[in-house]
Simulated scan of single mutants.
Amino acid sequence: MIIGVGIDVAEIERFGAALERTPQLAERLFVGSELTLPSGERRGVASLAARFAAKEALAKALGAPGGLLWSDAEVWVEESGQPRLRVRGTVAARAAELGVRGWHVSLSHDAGVASAVVIAEG
C-alpha cells in the first residue's frame, strides 16, 4: 500500500550558488557519505542537488511535518547504481508513525534541473 508520494525539483545552478554562499550548508543538509563518491572524490553539485530534492520529496511523502532533520535521511547508491534511502531519528519516527516499511526513490538531473520522486510504502 502506498502511504505517500513526494516529488521535488532543484535548480542546479541556484543550489550550487547557495552551497558556495554558505559553506556549512552542505554539512547541515547531508551526511558525510553523501558528499563523496565511492572513489573518495567530492560529489558534483548536480548530484548533490538531486539528493537535496530527494530529501524534500521524502518530507512531502511523509506529509511535510515540521521537525524533520535533513541529516536523518541519507541517499545512498547500491553497486548496481540504484538509489536508496536510509532513515533514522526524526524521519524514522515519522515513517513508523505512518506505517512506512519501505521506500522507492528515483533521482535525475538534466538541463539545469535536478529532480527526485519518493514513494513511501506500507
Rank of each mutant, 00 (worst) to 15 (best):
I2Q: 01
I3H: 00
G4N: 01
G4F: 00
V5R: 06
D8S: 06
D8M: 01
E11K: 05
E13H: 07
F15I: 09
G16N: 15
P23V: 10
P23G: 13
Q24T: 15
F30I: 14
F30L: 12
E34I: 09
L35C: 14
L35K: 14
P38T: 04
S39R: 14
S39Q: 14
G40S: 14
R42L: 11
G44A: 12
G44T: 09
V45G: 04
A46L: 11
L48F: 12
R51H: 09
R51Y: 09
R51N: 10
F52E: 10
F52I: 12
A53Q: 08
A53H: 07
A57Y: 03
A59F: 01
K60A: 02
K60V: 04
A61H: 00
G63K: 02
G66F: 06
L68Q: 09
L68F: 09
L68I: 08
L69E: 14
E78Y: 02
E78H: 07
S80N: 09
Q82G: 11
P83L: 08
R84L: 10
L85A: 02
R86Y: 11
V91L: 08
A93Y: 00
A93R: 11
R94C: 06
R94T: 08
A96W: 03
A96H: 06
L98N: 00
R101Q: 15
R101K: 14
G102Y: 02
V105M: 00
L107A: 08
L107N: 06
D110N: 09
A114M: 10
A114H: 07
A116Q: 07
V117F: 04
A120R: 00
E121C: 09
